[in-house]
């Protein structure tokens, strides 16, 4: 609806007219800083229309890595953050940038690798052992390298494995500094291993020879949280509308909508908001 409004808003040639154009800022909308995994898996395309129809509030999602999304919120450029790096989220709240952190849903990370499986890890359940085997075999591994939630999870797992992947940088360990999708594209063309979130993997089309190599380890748990940006820090934060969105996402209706999202019959995200 707002899109139509935008398209039909005539843009004056004068700079002042453009900058002052009220149409884009006065609408009822909130800005959500979120992750590439939620956007690129298609979850938001499924979820948001339900909320928008019910509330009349448009949700504008800017999809970035978790680290970038939190930075954006720290600068006051978002009303709500919806990300997946619990440690970073706690720090964000503790720093006074956000109000309460709400758990929303989880899915899991998976280790993806080429069919040829040079590190001989396919079919395993132990992610830590698999990472050690990849390092030992110097099998190519693509890292996000972008301070995203998935990147943070990957680095935690390397630490558990007692491996410093940075020593393999430029050799078998390739940091791409890109989002989940581009990293998958890279891995697909390099026939490399990589840690991905299951949602993006399921929605990803250019798989080439990539397969799931390791899944089901408890340590591959991937928790998503949602936080309202602290209006005491940024006065323009749309507290009421933002809180309304958060309340809906953790409500039984929102949780059911999340559970309903499937690709090829497979559920991508598992709601686990604490009942309030």
């Amino acid at each position: 609806m707002a899109l139509k409004h935008c398209v039909h808003t005539r843009i004056g040639a004068a700079a002042a007219a453009v900058i002052a154009a009220p149409g884009w800022s006065a609408d009822r909308f909130i800005t959500v800083a979120s992750t590439t995994s939620t956007e690129q898996s298609g979850l938001f395309r499924h979820l948001l229309p339900v909320f928008e129809k019910k509330s009349g509030i448009q949700v504008r999602v800017v999809a970035l890595g978790t680290g970038q999304a939190l930075d954006m919120a720290r600068r006051g450029d978002a009303d709500v953050v919806f990300v997946h790096d619990p440690a970073a989220e706690e720090k964000f709240v503790a720093g006074g940038y956000g109000l309460r952190r709400n758990e929303v849903m989880y899915n899991d990370f998976i280790l993806v690798g080429p069919k040829s499986d040079p590190a001989k890890v396919a079919g395993g359940r132990d992610i830590v052992a698999a990472l050690r085997a990849i390092q030992a075999a110097k099998a190519p591994f693509v890292s996000r390298g972008d301070k995203s939630g998935t990147h943070a999870a990957e680095l935690r797992l390397w630490k558990l494995a007692g491996v410093d992947p940075v020593s393999g940088r430029g050799n078998w360990y390739r940091e791409t500094g890109s989002g989940m999708g581009p990293a998958l594209n890279t891995a697909s063309s390099l026939n490399a291993y990589l840690l991905a979130d299951r949602g993006t993997w399921l929605a990803f089309k250019n798989r080439g020879d990539l397969r799931i190599a390791v899944e089901g380890d408890r340590r591959l748990f991937n928790q998503y949280g949602i936080i309202l940006v602290n209006p005491a820090r940024h006065a323009h934060v749309k507290q009421a509308a933002g809180q309304q969105f958060i309340d809906w996402v953790v409500s039984s209706e929102g949780q059911r909508a999340i559970a309903d999202y499937r690709i090829g019959g497979e559920q991508l995200f598992f709601p686990n908001a604490a009942a309030r």
């Binding site: 935008c6 843009i11 453009v18 900058i19 002052a20 154009a21 884009w24 800022s25 800005t31 504008r60 800017v62 600068r75 006051g76 450029d77 940024h234 323009h236």
Partner: peptide, 17 residues
């Protein structure tokens, strides 16, 4: 244009403007 920036008060970040 960021809210923390000098023109943040315009509120036009993430708009066509």
């Amino acid at each position: 244009l960021s809210r923390a920036g000098p023109l943040g008060h315009l509120g036009i970040l993430f708009t066509p403007a």
